[in-house]
Design a protein around this nucleic acid. Structure first.
Lengths: 242, 242
DNA sequence: CGCTTAGTTGACGTTAATCAACTTGTGTGG
DNA sequence: CCACACAAGTTGATTAACGTCAACTAAGCG
Protein backbone atom coordinates (compact mmCIF):
# COMPACT_ATOMS: atom_id res chain seq x y z
CA UNK A 1 0.00 0.00 0.00
CA UNK A 2 1.55 3.23 -1.15
CA UNK A 3 2.27 5.95 1.39
CA UNK A 4 0.00 8.96 1.01
CA UNK A 5 1.92 12.20 0.52
CA UNK A 6 -0.07 13.54 3.42
CA UNK A 7 1.69 11.03 5.68
CA UNK A 8 5.09 11.27 3.99
CA UNK A 9 7.72 10.52 6.65
CA UNK A 10 10.14 12.97 5.06
CA UNK A 11 7.91 15.90 5.87
CA UNK A 12 9.03 15.59 9.45
CA UNK A 13 12.65 16.24 8.60
CA UNK A 14 13.82 19.84 8.99
CA UNK A 15 16.05 19.29 5.97
CA UNK A 16 13.12 19.93 3.65
CA UNK A 17 11.06 22.99 2.88
CA UNK A 18 7.64 22.30 4.40
CA UNK A 19 4.80 21.66 1.96
CA UNK A 20 1.59 23.60 2.06
CA UNK A 21 -1.58 21.49 1.95
CA UNK A 22 -1.95 22.57 -1.64
CA UNK A 23 1.60 21.40 -2.40
CA UNK A 24 0.89 18.05 -0.83
CA UNK A 25 -2.30 17.59 -2.79
CA UNK A 26 -0.53 18.53 -5.98
CA UNK A 27 2.34 16.10 -5.43
CA UNK A 28 -0.17 13.40 -4.56
CA UNK A 29 -1.82 13.90 -7.93
CA UNK A 30 1.54 13.68 -9.62
CA UNK A 31 2.50 10.51 -7.79
CA UNK A 32 1.58 7.34 -9.65
CA UNK A 33 2.86 4.72 -7.24
CA UNK A 34 5.61 3.37 -5.10
CA UNK A 35 8.55 1.18 -6.00
CA UNK A 36 10.24 -1.14 -3.53
CA UNK A 37 13.56 -2.58 -4.61
CA UNK A 38 16.33 -4.77 -3.26
CA UNK A 39 19.98 -3.83 -2.87
CA UNK A 40 21.81 -4.09 -6.16
CA UNK A 41 18.80 -3.26 -8.29
CA UNK A 42 19.32 -0.58 -10.93
CA UNK A 43 16.38 1.80 -11.11
CA UNK A 44 17.69 3.99 -13.93
CA UNK A 45 20.21 3.13 -16.63
CA UNK A 46 22.59 5.47 -18.38
CA UNK A 47 21.17 6.15 -21.83
CA UNK A 48 17.65 5.14 -20.89
CA UNK A 49 14.64 7.33 -21.63
CA UNK A 50 12.87 6.43 -18.47
CA UNK A 51 9.19 7.35 -18.37
CA UNK A 52 9.50 7.73 -14.62
CA UNK A 53 10.84 10.08 -12.03
CA UNK A 54 11.50 9.15 -8.44
CA UNK A 55 11.94 10.56 -5.02
CA UNK A 56 13.89 8.36 -2.63
CA UNK A 57 11.61 7.76 0.32
CA UNK A 58 13.64 5.21 2.25
CA UNK A 59 17.05 3.61 1.76
CA UNK A 60 20.24 4.61 0.00
CA UNK A 61 21.77 4.20 -3.41
CA UNK A 62 24.48 5.38 -5.78
CA UNK A 63 24.56 7.36 -9.01
CA UNK A 64 27.37 6.31 -11.31
CA UNK A 65 28.78 6.44 -14.79
CA UNK A 66 30.60 3.63 -16.53
CA UNK A 67 33.52 4.51 -18.79
CA UNK A 68 34.37 2.68 -21.98
CA UNK A 69 37.13 0.86 -20.14
CA UNK A 70 34.64 -0.53 -17.66
CA UNK A 71 35.85 1.71 -14.86
CA UNK A 72 33.09 3.16 -12.75
CA UNK A 73 32.80 6.69 -11.40
CA UNK A 74 30.38 7.11 -8.55
CA UNK A 75 28.84 10.56 -9.03
CA UNK A 76 27.24 10.73 -5.62
CA UNK A 77 25.35 8.90 -2.96
CA UNK A 78 21.55 8.93 -2.94
CA UNK A 79 19.78 9.68 0.33
CA UNK A 80 16.14 9.83 1.36
CA UNK A 81 14.53 12.91 -0.13
CA UNK A 82 16.69 12.97 -3.24
CA UNK A 83 14.99 13.54 -6.56
CA UNK A 84 16.03 11.02 -9.21
CA UNK A 85 15.69 11.18 -12.95
CA UNK A 86 15.63 14.89 -13.64
CA UNK A 87 18.09 14.50 -16.49
CA UNK A 88 15.84 12.09 -18.32
CA UNK A 89 12.93 14.44 -17.75
CA UNK A 90 14.54 17.56 -19.19
CA UNK A 91 17.25 16.21 -21.49
CA UNK A 92 15.40 13.13 -22.66
CA UNK A 93 18.01 10.64 -21.55
CA UNK A 94 19.85 9.69 -18.37
CA UNK A 95 23.55 10.45 -18.39
CA UNK A 96 24.25 8.19 -15.45
CA UNK A 97 22.80 5.11 -13.79
CA UNK A 98 21.23 4.88 -10.36
CA UNK A 99 21.23 1.72 -8.25
CA UNK A 100 20.09 0.79 -4.77
CA UNK A 101 22.68 -0.07 -2.11
CA UNK A 102 20.13 -0.93 0.56
CA UNK A 103 16.48 -1.89 0.28
CA UNK A 104 14.78 1.22 -1.09
CA UNK A 105 11.32 2.66 -1.37
CA UNK A 106 10.76 5.20 -4.12
CA UNK A 107 7.87 7.48 -4.92
CA UNK A 108 7.15 7.18 -8.60
CA UNK A 109 6.09 10.16 -10.69
CA UNK A 110 4.99 10.18 -14.28
CA UNK A 111 7.38 11.92 -16.58
CA UNK A 112 4.65 12.71 -19.07
CA UNK A 113 3.13 14.98 -16.45
CA UNK A 114 6.38 16.81 -15.96
CA UNK A 115 5.78 19.46 -18.54
CA UNK A 116 2.29 20.24 -17.20
CA UNK A 117 3.85 20.41 -13.85
CA UNK A 118 6.30 22.94 -15.09
CA UNK A 119 3.70 25.14 -16.71
CA UNK A 120 1.03 25.07 -14.08
CA UNK A 121 3.20 25.43 -10.98
CA UNK A 122 6.01 27.88 -11.58
CA UNK A 123 7.09 27.83 -7.96
CA UNK A 124 7.51 24.07 -8.10
CA UNK A 125 9.32 24.42 -11.43
CA UNK A 126 11.59 26.83 -9.66
CA UNK A 127 12.20 24.21 -6.99
CA UNK A 128 13.23 21.71 -9.62
CA UNK A 129 15.73 24.19 -10.98
CA UNK A 130 16.93 24.82 -7.45
CA UNK A 131 17.59 21.11 -7.05
CA UNK A 132 19.48 21.00 -10.32
CA UNK A 133 21.61 23.95 -9.27
CA UNK A 134 22.23 22.30 -5.91
CA UNK A 135 23.33 19.14 -7.63
CA UNK A 136 25.68 21.18 -9.76
CA UNK A 137 27.08 22.77 -6.63
CA UNK A 138 27.63 19.43 -5.01
CA UNK A 139 29.36 18.00 -8.06
CA UNK A 140 31.68 20.99 -8.06
CA UNK A 141 32.63 20.17 -4.48
CA UNK A 142 33.19 16.55 -5.38
CA UNK A 143 35.35 17.57 -8.29
CA UNK A 144 37.45 19.73 -6.00
CA UNK A 145 37.82 16.81 -3.63
CA UNK A 146 38.92 14.31 -6.21
CA UNK A 147 41.13 16.85 -7.93
CA UNK A 148 42.80 18.60 -5.04
CA UNK A 149 42.60 16.56 -1.87
CA UNK A 150 44.94 13.76 -0.77
CA UNK A 151 43.47 10.31 -0.17
CA UNK A 152 43.11 10.90 3.56
CA UNK A 153 41.54 14.31 3.06
CA UNK A 154 39.18 13.00 0.41
CA UNK A 155 37.97 10.10 2.51
CA UNK A 156 37.54 12.36 5.52
CA UNK A 157 35.66 14.83 3.34
CA UNK A 158 33.33 12.13 2.11
CA UNK A 159 32.58 10.75 5.55
CA UNK A 160 31.99 14.24 6.90
CA UNK A 161 29.53 15.08 4.12
CA UNK A 162 27.72 11.82 4.61
CA UNK A 163 27.51 12.34 8.35
CA UNK A 164 26.15 15.86 7.95
CA UNK A 165 23.53 14.69 5.50
CA UNK A 166 22.74 11.77 7.77
CA UNK A 167 22.24 14.08 10.70
CA UNK A 168 19.98 16.39 8.73
CA UNK A 169 17.94 13.42 7.57
CA UNK A 170 17.59 12.06 11.10
CA UNK A 171 19.59 8.90 10.46
CA UNK A 172 22.14 9.52 13.20
CA UNK A 173 21.80 8.11 16.70
CA UNK A 174 24.68 8.09 19.18
CA UNK A 175 26.98 9.55 16.56
CA UNK A 176 26.28 6.50 14.45
CA UNK A 177 24.38 6.09 11.19
CA UNK A 178 23.69 3.24 8.80
CA UNK A 179 25.94 3.32 5.73
CA UNK A 180 25.11 0.43 3.45
CA UNK A 181 27.86 0.91 0.87
CA UNK A 182 30.90 -1.14 0.02
CA UNK A 183 34.40 0.27 0.27
CA UNK A 184 34.52 -0.15 -3.49
CA UNK A 185 31.72 2.41 -3.82
CA UNK A 186 33.67 5.00 -1.88
CA UNK A 187 36.82 4.17 -3.85
CA UNK A 188 34.94 4.69 -7.12
CA UNK A 189 33.54 7.96 -5.84
CA UNK A 190 36.95 9.34 -4.96
CA UNK A 191 38.96 7.91 -7.83
CA UNK A 192 41.08 5.82 -5.46
CA UNK A 193 41.92 2.13 -5.60
CA UNK A 194 40.01 -0.20 -3.33
CA UNK A 195 43.15 -1.19 -1.47
CA UNK A 196 44.24 2.36 -0.82
CA UNK A 197 40.75 3.33 0.29
CA UNK A 198 40.74 0.41 2.70
CA UNK A 199 44.08 1.41 4.19
CA UNK A 200 43.01 5.03 4.46
CA UNK A 201 39.83 4.05 6.28
CA UNK A 202 41.98 1.93 8.55
CA UNK A 203 44.16 4.91 9.41
CA UNK A 204 41.16 7.06 10.27
CA UNK A 205 39.90 4.23 12.43
CA UNK A 206 43.26 3.90 14.22
CA UNK A 207 43.29 7.64 14.82
CA UNK A 208 39.80 7.32 16.32
CA UNK A 209 38.38 9.79 13.83
CA UNK A 210 35.85 7.65 12.04
CA UNK A 211 34.89 4.03 12.19
CA UNK A 212 32.96 2.62 9.27
CA UNK A 213 32.37 -1.09 9.59
CA UNK A 214 29.54 -3.61 9.39
CA UNK A 215 27.36 -1.12 7.58
CA UNK A 216 27.54 1.60 10.20
CA UNK A 217 29.52 4.80 10.33
CA UNK A 218 30.56 6.15 13.70
CA UNK A 219 32.14 9.58 14.00
CA UNK A 220 33.11 10.78 17.43
CA UNK A 221 34.05 14.37 16.64
CA UNK A 222 32.91 15.66 13.32
CA UNK A 223 34.80 18.93 13.69
CA UNK A 224 38.02 16.97 14.04
CA UNK A 225 37.22 14.92 10.96
CA UNK A 226 36.33 18.02 9.00
CA UNK A 227 39.67 19.55 9.97
CA UNK A 228 41.48 16.59 8.44
CA UNK A 229 39.33 17.05 5.35
CA UNK A 230 40.34 20.72 5.07
CA UNK A 231 36.73 21.77 5.00
CA UNK A 232 34.38 23.85 7.08
CA UNK A 233 31.37 22.22 8.65
CA UNK A 234 28.10 23.72 7.47
CA UNK A 235 24.60 22.46 8.00
CA UNK A 236 23.21 21.23 4.68
CA UNK A 237 20.93 23.80 3.08
CA UNK A 238 17.21 23.33 3.50
CA UNK A 239 15.98 21.96 0.20
CA UNK A 240 12.72 21.48 -1.66
CA UNK A 241 11.17 18.04 -1.56
CA UNK A 242 9.49 16.65 -4.66
CA UNK B 1 26.86 50.33 -27.95
CA UNK B 2 25.15 47.18 -26.79
CA UNK B 3 24.37 44.51 -29.33
CA UNK B 4 20.65 44.11 -29.97
CA UNK B 5 19.42 40.59 -29.35
CA UNK B 6 18.00 40.74 -32.84
CA UNK B 7 21.54 40.93 -34.18
CA UNK B 8 23.08 38.53 -31.69
CA UNK B 9 26.03 36.84 -33.41
CA UNK B 10 25.39 33.62 -31.52
CA UNK B 11 22.07 33.10 -33.25
CA UNK B 12 24.00 32.09 -36.34
CA UNK B 13 25.61 29.14 -34.61
CA UNK B 14 23.87 25.79 -35.10
CA UNK B 15 24.85 24.92 -31.53
CA UNK B 16 21.89 26.87 -30.21
CA UNK B 17 18.17 26.33 -30.40
CA UNK B 18 16.89 29.07 -32.73
CA UNK B 19 14.88 31.86 -31.11
CA UNK B 20 11.44 32.81 -32.33
CA UNK B 21 10.91 36.55 -32.83
CA UNK B 22 8.91 36.50 -29.64
CA UNK B 23 11.82 34.86 -27.78
CA UNK B 24 14.20 37.47 -29.08
CA UNK B 25 11.94 40.33 -28.03
CA UNK B 26 11.54 38.79 -24.63
CA UNK B 27 15.26 38.33 -24.06
CA UNK B 28 15.84 41.88 -25.26
CA UNK B 29 13.50 43.14 -22.58
CA UNK B 30 15.33 41.04 -20.00
CA UNK B 31 18.72 42.32 -21.10
CA UNK B 32 19.88 45.39 -19.22
CA UNK B 33 23.26 45.96 -20.81
CA UNK B 34 26.57 44.68 -21.93
CA UNK B 35 29.78 44.18 -19.99
CA UNK B 36 33.20 44.27 -21.60
CA UNK B 37 36.07 43.00 -19.48
CA UNK B 38 39.78 42.35 -19.72
CA UNK B 39 41.54 39.04 -19.17
CA UNK B 40 42.00 38.32 -15.50
CA UNK B 41 38.87 40.16 -14.42
CA UNK B 42 36.54 38.27 -12.10
CA UNK B 43 32.89 38.76 -13.02
CA UNK B 44 31.39 36.65 -10.23
CA UNK B 45 32.87 35.78 -6.87
CA UNK B 46 32.23 32.65 -4.83
CA UNK B 47 29.89 33.63 -2.02
CA UNK B 48 28.61 36.74 -3.76
CA UNK B 49 24.91 37.46 -4.16
CA UNK B 50 25.31 38.97 -7.56
CA UNK B 51 22.33 40.97 -8.79
CA UNK B 52 23.29 40.05 -12.31
CA UNK B 53 23.18 37.16 -14.70
CA UNK B 54 25.25 36.89 -17.82
CA UNK B 55 25.47 35.19 -21.14
CA UNK B 56 28.95 35.02 -22.61
CA UNK B 57 28.74 36.72 -25.97
CA UNK B 58 32.42 36.78 -26.94
CA UNK B 59 35.60 35.47 -25.33
CA UNK B 60 36.44 32.71 -22.90
CA UNK B 61 36.77 32.30 -19.17
CA UNK B 62 37.00 29.84 -16.29
CA UNK B 63 34.73 28.83 -13.45
CA UNK B 64 36.63 27.79 -10.34
CA UNK B 65 36.47 27.11 -6.65
CA UNK B 66 39.17 27.94 -4.15
CA UNK B 67 39.77 25.52 -1.26
CA UNK B 68 40.75 26.54 2.24
CA UNK B 69 44.32 25.60 1.47
CA UNK B 70 44.43 28.03 -1.43
CA UNK B 71 44.34 25.28 -4.02
CA UNK B 72 42.14 26.01 -6.98
CA UNK B 73 39.81 23.65 -8.79
CA UNK B 74 38.75 24.76 -12.23
CA UNK B 75 35.15 23.56 -12.63
CA UNK B 76 34.96 24.16 -16.33
CA UNK B 77 35.79 26.45 -19.18
CA UNK B 78 33.36 29.16 -20.24
CA UNK B 79 32.61 29.52 -23.94
CA UNK B 80 30.45 31.90 -25.96
CA UNK B 81 26.80 31.13 -25.37
CA UNK B 82 27.28 29.91 -21.80
CA UNK B 83 24.86 31.15 -19.18
CA UNK B 84 26.59 32.44 -16.06
CA UNK B 85 25.22 33.05 -12.60
CA UNK B 86 22.34 30.62 -12.42
CA UNK B 87 23.40 29.47 -8.98
CA UNK B 88 23.18 32.95 -7.55
CA UNK B 89 19.79 33.35 -9.21
CA UNK B 90 18.19 30.26 -7.76
CA UNK B 91 20.25 29.49 -4.66
CA UNK B 92 20.95 33.07 -3.67
CA UNK B 93 24.70 32.78 -3.72
CA UNK B 94 27.44 31.74 -6.12
CA UNK B 95 29.26 28.57 -5.17
CA UNK B 96 32.15 29.25 -7.48
CA UNK B 97 33.90 32.20 -9.10
CA UNK B 98 34.00 33.09 -12.77
CA UNK B 99 36.85 34.99 -14.39
CA UNK B 100 37.76 36.03 -17.91
CA UNK B 101 40.76 34.43 -19.62
CA UNK B 102 40.50 36.52 -22.76
CA UNK B 103 38.79 39.83 -23.40
CA UNK B 104 35.09 39.08 -22.95
CA UNK B 105 31.77 40.61 -23.82
CA UNK B 106 28.82 39.59 -21.67
CA UNK B 107 25.11 40.20 -21.98
CA UNK B 108 23.85 41.38 -18.64
CA UNK B 109 20.46 40.33 -17.30
CA UNK B 110 18.73 41.54 -14.20
CA UNK B 111 18.38 38.91 -11.54
CA UNK B 112 15.36 40.64 -10.02
CA UNK B 113 13.49 39.86 -13.22
CA UNK B 114 14.41 36.22 -13.01
CA UNK B 115 11.39 35.12 -11.06
CA UNK B 116 8.99 36.93 -13.38
CA UNK B 117 10.77 35.30 -16.18
CA UNK B 118 10.16 31.95 -14.60
CA UNK B 119 6.48 32.54 -14.06
CA UNK B 120 5.55 34.17 -17.30
CA UNK B 121 7.52 32.00 -19.68
CA UNK B 122 7.44 28.37 -18.62
CA UNK B 123 9.15 27.19 -21.76
CA UNK B 124 12.08 29.48 -21.05
CA UNK B 125 12.07 28.35 -17.44
CA UNK B 126 12.29 24.85 -18.78
CA UNK B 127 15.29 25.89 -20.85
CA UNK B 128 17.01 27.18 -17.74
CA UNK B 129 16.47 23.85 -16.06
CA UNK B 130 17.73 22.14 -19.16
CA UNK B 131 20.93 24.15 -18.91
CA UNK B 132 21.33 23.27 -15.25
CA UNK B 133 20.86 19.58 -16.03
CA UNK B 134 23.36 19.87 -18.86
CA UNK B 135 25.86 21.44 -16.53
CA UNK B 136 25.32 18.61 -14.09
CA UNK B 137 25.92 16.14 -16.87
CA UNK B 138 29.11 17.84 -17.85
CA UNK B 139 30.40 17.95 -14.30
CA UNK B 140 29.75 14.23 -14.02
CA UNK B 141 31.94 13.69 -17.06
CA UNK B 142 34.64 15.87 -15.61
CA UNK B 143 34.49 13.97 -12.35
CA UNK B 144 34.91 10.71 -14.22
CA UNK B 145 37.91 12.17 -16.02
CA UNK B 146 39.67 13.40 -12.95
CA UNK B 147 38.81 10.28 -11.01
CA UNK B 148 39.40 7.54 -13.50
CA UNK B 149 41.63 8.70 -16.30
CA UNK B 150 45.44 8.80 -16.37
CA UNK B 151 47.13 12.15 -16.95
CA UNK B 152 47.52 11.55 -20.68
CA UNK B 153 43.94 10.41 -21.04
CA UNK B 154 42.62 13.31 -19.03
CA UNK B 155 44.53 15.92 -21.00
CA UNK B 156 43.46 14.31 -24.27
CA UNK B 157 39.88 14.25 -23.01
CA UNK B 158 39.99 17.91 -22.17
CA UNK B 159 41.46 18.97 -25.48
CA UNK B 160 38.95 16.84 -27.36
CA UNK B 161 36.00 18.36 -25.51
CA UNK B 162 37.33 21.84 -26.08
CA UNK B 163 37.86 21.18 -29.76
CA UNK B 164 34.34 19.79 -30.19
CA UNK B 165 32.83 22.77 -28.44
CA UNK B 166 35.05 25.07 -30.47
CA UNK B 167 33.88 23.48 -33.70
CA UNK B 168 30.25 23.77 -32.72
CA UNK B 169 30.75 27.42 -31.81
CA UNK B 170 32.48 28.17 -35.11
CA UNK B 171 35.84 28.98 -33.56
CA UNK B 172 37.78 26.39 -35.53
CA UNK B 173 39.56 27.17 -38.79
CA UNK B 174 42.09 24.82 -40.34
CA UNK B 175 41.81 22.47 -37.38
CA UNK B 176 42.95 25.32 -35.19
CA UNK B 177 41.11 27.36 -32.59
CA UNK B 178 42.07 30.09 -30.13
CA UNK B 179 42.61 28.80 -26.60
CA UNK B 180 43.52 31.66 -24.29
CA UNK B 181 44.20 29.67 -21.13
CA UNK B 182 47.39 28.99 -19.21
CA UNK B 183 48.68 25.48 -18.65
CA UNK B 184 48.01 26.14 -14.98
CA UNK B 185 44.28 26.44 -15.77
CA UNK B 186 44.22 23.04 -17.39
CA UNK B 187 46.27 21.58 -14.54
CA UNK B 188 43.78 22.96 -12.02
CA UNK B 189 40.90 21.57 -14.04
CA UNK B 190 42.35 18.06 -14.08
CA UNK B 191 43.85 17.95 -10.61
CA UNK B 192 47.35 17.59 -12.01
CA UNK B 193 50.48 19.54 -11.19
CA UNK B 194 51.58 22.23 -13.61
CA UNK B 195 54.82 20.41 -14.36
CA UNK B 196 53.15 17.14 -15.12
CA UNK B 197 50.54 18.83 -17.28
CA UNK B 198 53.29 20.53 -19.22
CA UNK B 199 55.12 17.27 -19.82
CA UNK B 200 51.92 15.53 -20.83
CA UNK B 201 51.09 18.25 -23.33
CA UNK B 202 54.64 17.90 -24.63
CA UNK B 203 54.13 14.19 -25.23
CA UNK B 204 50.89 14.76 -27.13
CA UNK B 205 52.73 17.33 -29.21
CA UNK B 206 55.60 14.93 -29.95
CA UNK B 207 53.10 12.29 -30.97
CA UNK B 208 51.51 14.82 -33.34
CA UNK B 209 48.14 14.45 -31.65
CA UNK B 210 47.56 17.95 -30.38
CA UNK B 211 49.59 21.09 -30.35
CA UNK B 212 48.57 23.80 -27.94
CA UNK B 213 50.96 26.74 -27.96
CA UNK B 214 50.90 30.50 -28.26
CA UNK B 215 47.22 30.60 -27.42
CA UNK B 216 46.11 28.27 -30.21
CA UNK B 217 45.10 24.66 -30.18
CA UNK B 218 45.72 22.56 -33.26
CA UNK B 219 44.36 19.04 -33.52
CA UNK B 220 45.07 17.11 -36.67
CA UNK B 221 42.86 14.08 -36.11
CA UNK B 222 40.29 14.42 -33.39
CA UNK B 223 39.25 10.77 -33.62
CA UNK B 224 42.79 9.77 -32.83
CA UNK B 225 42.92 12.11 -29.86
CA UNK B 226 39.57 10.86 -28.60
CA UNK B 227 40.88 7.32 -28.79
CA UNK B 228 43.75 8.21 -26.47
CA UNK B 229 41.18 9.82 -24.17
CA UNK B 230 39.11 6.62 -24.07
CA UNK B 231 36.02 8.51 -25.15
CA UNK B 232 33.62 8.49 -28.04
CA UNK B 233 33.29 11.60 -30.17
CA UNK B 234 29.80 13.06 -30.13
CA UNK B 235 28.61 16.35 -31.46
CA UNK B 236 27.68 18.61 -28.54
CA UNK B 237 23.95 18.67 -27.97
CA UNK B 238 22.03 21.61 -29.35
CA UNK B 239 21.31 23.85 -26.38
CA UNK B 240 19.07 26.75 -25.46
CA UNK B 241 20.57 30.22 -25.56
CA UNK B 242 19.65 32.73 -22.91
C1' DC C 1 30.67 -28.08 2.58
C1' DG C 2 32.09 -25.34 -1.15
C1' DC C 3 31.31 -20.98 -3.35
C1' DT C 4 31.06 -16.08 -3.45
C1' DT C 5 31.49 -11.40 -1.73
C1' DA C 6 33.60 -7.99 1.23
C1' DG C 7 37.24 -6.65 3.83
C1' DT C 8 42.29 -6.76 5.23
C1' DT C 9 47.32 -6.79 4.87
C1' DG C 10 52.19 -6.89 2.96
C1' DA C 11 55.44 -6.41 -0.90
C1' DC C 12 56.48 -4.12 -4.89
C1' DG C 13 56.03 -0.98 -9.00
C1' DT C 14 54.61 3.25 -11.34
C1' DT C 15 52.63 7.59 -11.83
C1' DA C 16 52.62 11.93 -10.78
C1' DA C 17 54.16 15.60 -7.21
C1' DT C 18 57.85 18.41 -5.73
C1' DC C 19 62.04 21.00 -6.17
C1' DA C 20 64.95 23.63 -8.79
C1' DA C 21 67.06 25.77 -12.61
C1' DC C 22 66.66 27.92 -16.92
C1' DT C 23 64.36 30.07 -21.27
C1' DT C 24 61.51 33.25 -23.63
C1' DG C 25 58.62 37.06 -24.27
C1' DT C 26 56.59 41.37 -22.63
C1' DG C 27 56.05 45.48 -20.34
C1' DT C 28 58.03 49.29 -17.54
C1' DG C 29 60.78 52.80 -15.79
C1' DG C 30 65.28 55.03 -15.71
C1' DC D 1 67.19 52.01 -25.62
C1' DC D 2 68.70 49.16 -22.10
C1' DA D 3 68.01 46.95 -17.53
C1' DC D 4 64.99 44.75 -14.85
C1' DA D 5 61.02 42.51 -13.18
C1' DC D 6 57.47 39.39 -14.05
C1' DA D 7 54.64 35.84 -16.11
C1' DA D 8 54.44 31.63 -18.68
C1' DG D 9 56.49 27.74 -20.37
C1' DT D 10 60.16 24.00 -20.32
C1' DT D 11 63.27 20.44 -18.51
C1' DG D 12 65.88 17.16 -15.37
C1' DA D 13 66.46 14.99 -10.81
C1' DT D 14 64.41 13.20 -6.79
C1' DT D 15 60.64 11.67 -3.82
C1' DA D 16 56.14 10.46 -2.15
C1' DA D 17 51.62 8.90 -2.91
C1' DC D 18 49.01 5.76 -4.70
C1' DG D 19 48.14 1.56 -7.75
C1' DT D 20 48.76 -3.33 -8.56
C1' DC D 21 49.42 -8.03 -7.31
C1' DA D 22 48.70 -11.59 -4.29
C1' DA D 23 47.42 -14.08 -0.38
C1' DC D 24 44.44 -14.56 3.39
C1' DT D 25 40.18 -14.04 6.75
C1' DA D 26 35.37 -13.83 7.84
C1' DA D 27 30.61 -13.99 6.86
C1' DG D 28 26.57 -15.49 4.30
C1' DC D 29 24.15 -18.76 1.48
C1' DG D 30 22.53 -22.70 -1.32
Amino acid sequence: MATKCKYCPLHKSPLFVPHSDEDTRFMQRFKVGELVIDPGTTMLMEGSKSPQLFTALRGMGVRYKTLETGQRQVINFVFPGDFIGLQAAVMGEMQHSVAASSPMTLCVFDRAEFWNFFRSHPERAFDVTWLAAMEEHFLGEALASVGQRSATEAVAWSLTRIMLRGKATGLVQNRTMPLPYRQQDLADALGLSLVHTNKTLGKLRDRQLANWSDGYLYVNDIEELAKIAQMTVEEPMVRPLM
